[in-house]
Design a protein around this nucleic acid. Structure first.
Lengths: 135, 135
DNA sequence: GCTTGACCCTATAGTTGCTATAGCCGCTAC
DNA sequence: GTAGCGGCTATAGCAACTATAGGGTCAAGC
């Protein structure tokens, strides 16, 4: 049975990634350089499709490209201990939780600033502008 | 009474902004080009200090530089209606709330993925890697 | 046989909000 | 006079793409 092969547009459709982004991943070494057809088109295998799916899933989960590269490297070393993956995931989760806390505080402040604006007035006595630091 | 004047390092200290960042704000037109001393040093007035404080406060609140520029422009037009300021603030708040929702969903997913990892095992049967899309 | 359109290629520059680097000048203190 | 701090300009780099220019390939329809 012949291996299925894909062109870059197929990969794009199958993974919801833009074509340019796939080429970008290749340029930075996150995706391996694929074989080329006679017309110099990129030809991908099923394994490469899986790799891109893995990358996109990690990106959806908010991992940086650097973290994704690390996860991908770890994932291909089947004998290695799982703890590094676990650590990466936990660190990332902690970062996200920090960001949520920051944004939550920020939203509260914006709401309290915004609540002071009754509307229908002018800048000269706008409470928001005032709260943003008189100018 | 003579106007107080500041050098760029003073502004940096007083606002918690890096010197290079202040120059960058000038380059993109967010801060006006200040007067220069005989030695070509930038010389700032109190009004310019206030403007920088305003900018930094907006940045702390998560407004983009573009939004800050708009807010600054609005704030200097004292006769203008306050509604545009109010709108900007509300749009921004909505964006932040969206981001919080996204991150919260993401954190939940990471927690559930991470919870499946018991540790002490190898990549070959790591649940996290599996969840990230078998490879 | 030729054109149209979808798809592919490369290379370069732009985005946001800075930060870093190189290489220089002014001013004050010892 | 020289050390050290501060100032100056100009350019390049960061993440993670996105956009643009200018071209090649290939199948279908006229």
């Amino acid at each position: 049975m012949p291996e299925e092969i894909y062109r870059i547009g197929d990969l794009a459709r199958l993974t919801g990634t833009k074509v340019v982004t796939i080429r970008y991943y290749e340029k930075i070494g996150l995706m391996p350089a694929p074989h080329r057809s006679a017309a110099n088109y990129r030809i991908y295998s099923k394994a490469q499709l899986h790799r891109l799916q893995f990358i996109r899933r990690c990106r959806e989960l908010g991992f940086s490209l650097e973290q994704v590269a690390e996860l991908a490297a770890l994932s291909s070393d089947r004998a290695r201990s799982c703890t590094e993956v676990d650590d990466l995931t936990r660190v990332h989760l902690a970062e996200i939780e920090d960001k949520i806390a920051d944004l939550t505080a920020l939203a509260a402040e914006l709401r309290s600033i915004g609540a002071q604006c009754k509307g229908g007035t002018t800048i000269s006595n706008c409470r928001i502008i005032e709260a943003l630091g008189r100018n």
